Amino acid sequence: MDQRIINFLQNNEILSFAMQDRNEVYIANAFYIFDILHFSFIIASDKNTKHVKLSIINPCIAVNVYQGKKIALLKGVQIKAKFMDATKEQEKLYYHKFPFVKFQKDIKIYALCILWAKFTDNTLMLNQKIEFQRN
């Protein structure tokens, strides 16, 4: 993964992710930490939420992380990812940054494994786009 994408994802902490089943689509937001070793987002959510239930039915999800309020300064990453349970190692990473989550009822830690990403940085010359494809 290009270092510019990694830097961008490490310097943000809120993502939006969209999921669907056969009949509906849904979107949610989450605080995340970026797991650089596995190119994954780690999030926490109540296991009974609609977005978790839909993501379990169909783990192919879309993710968006962006920043900027002016088009010339806009930076963002559009992502295709796979929704899955976090590993014990990923859970530890999440609890290290957000320790209070450990004590919330029905909260579970999940990983959004990046399969493909496109980084847009309008501050780069010629509105350059950088892509990542997991092998």
Rank of each mutant, 00 (worst) to 15 (best):
M1Y: 10
D2E: 07
D2N: 05
Q3L: 08
R4Y: 03
I5E: 10
I5G: 00
F8D: 00
N11M: 05
N11Y: 10
N12S: 09
N12E: 11
E13Y: 14
S16A: 10
A18Q: 00
A18C: 02
M19K: 07
M19L: 11
M19W: 03
N23D: 09
V25R: 10
Y26Q: 07
A28Y: 13
A30I: 04
A30E: 15
F31W: 12
I33K: 11
F34E: 09
D35L: 11
L37D: 15
S40Q: 10
S40I: 09
F41A: 01
A44Q: 07
D46S: 08
T49K: 03
K50D: 11
K50A: 12
H51C: 14
H51L: 07
H51K: 10
K53N: 09
S55H: 06
I56G: 08
I57M: 03
C60R: 15
C60N: 15
I61Y: 07
A62D: 07
V63D: 00
V65N: 09
G68K: 00
G68I: 01
K69D: 05
K70P: 00
I71Q: 01
I71C: 01
A72K: 13
K75R: 11
K80A: 08
K80D: 11
D85W: 02
K88A: 14
K88G: 00
E89C: 08
E89H: 07
Q90V: 05
E91A: 09
K92E: 11
L93M: 09
Y94C: 01
K97Q: 14
F98G: 11
P99M: 03
F100N: 05
V101W: 09
K108N: 09
I109A: 06
A111Q: 14
I114Y: 08
A117K: 04
A117S: 13
T120F: 01
N122D: 05
T123Q: 06
T123A: 11
T123M: 02
M125I: 12
M125F: 04
L126R: 06
N127T: 05
I130N: 08
F132W: 14
R134F: 02
